[in-house]
Design a protein around this nucleic acid. Structure first.
Length: 238
DNA sequence: GCCACCGGTGGC
DNA sequence: GCCACCGGTGGC
């Protein structure tokens, strides 16, 4: 019983939304969709899964009365974050707004009971298996391994970049193009307004003045934000 | 010892 | 061939 009342918020505004997604790191509201049947589930036996918005971390399930640790988030979530190898993400604070995290609990095998985390890109629904994969995607705009396919179908091709160019057809193996981090830190937009274009959806569209910000630009923002907060967090001096 | 990450594989 | 899942490992 998903209870996502589409019609609440009596006098909900419509003009100026306060929080700029780029500034609010882990805060995000997500209606509890996916009741566990939508699409992913081809196998007969499957573990409990839980999709949540970024910013929180829920762990549920527990095959067989195994009494596992009762997670106690506490505040130890600010330990080592510098290293880029393992054990890097305390929480999911590094996740850009809109991304979903799915905790999948294994139900069989020698590792039954352990949890796998999957990250979903908000627009395409692409799935990633680790923080590294997500960061790579954010920075390169593509995943290393030809991407596992998307689950969603909310494509929104950018309607620009004319230049009548012939879009290179993705070659099987081709080193990713130069770092696509395009953000002018020197002179960022003075004001950005975010409007919800689809009620009930997490589709916020940025506007600068009356001009809609290109989706590709929006992505650059996300990338810049992520890069900064995850790789240079301690040395900000812009 | 814990746990994030990724390789590899088996089912569809 | 695609995709979800498990196994195993290496870093902490």
């Amino acid at each position: 019983m998903s209870t996502s009342t589409p019609s609440d918020k009596p006098g909900s505004i419509a003009g100026d939304f306060p929080p700029d997604p780029l500034l609010a790191s882990g805060s995000f509201i997500s209606s509890d969709t996916t009741a566990g049947d939508s699409s992913a589930n081809r196998r007969p036996i499957q573990g409990v899964t839980r999709v949540i918005g970024s910013g929180q971390n829920v762990r549920i399930g527990m095959p067989k009365g195994t009494d596992q640790v009762h997670q106690s988030p506490g505040n130890s979530a600010q330990r080592a974050e510098s290293k880029s190898r393992k054990r890097a993400a305390p929480g999911d604070n590094w996740l850009p707004p809109g991304w979903k995290v799915e905790d999948k609990i294994r139900t069989s095998g020698a590792t039954a009971g352990s949890v796998d985390k999957y990250y979903y890109e908000p627009v395409t629904g692409q799935r990633f298996r680790s923080r590294n994969e997500v960061l790579y995607y954010l920075e390169h705009g593509t995943s290393k391994k030809g991407a596992r396919k998307a689950a969603n179908t909310d494509f929104r091709s950018d309607q620009f970049e004319g230049q009548g160019s012939k879009k290179s057809v993705r070659k099987a193996k081709e080193p990713p193009p130069p770092p696509p981090l395009n953000f002018d830190f020197e002179s960022p937009p003075e004001k950005v307004s975010w409007a919800m274009t689809k009620a009930g959806e997490e589709a916020w569209t940025p506007f600068i003045g009356d001009d809609k910000v290109q989706d590709s630009v929006r992505r650059d923002w996300v990338t810049a934000f992520t890069v900064i907060t995850t790789q240079n967090a301690s040395k900000l001096s812009f």
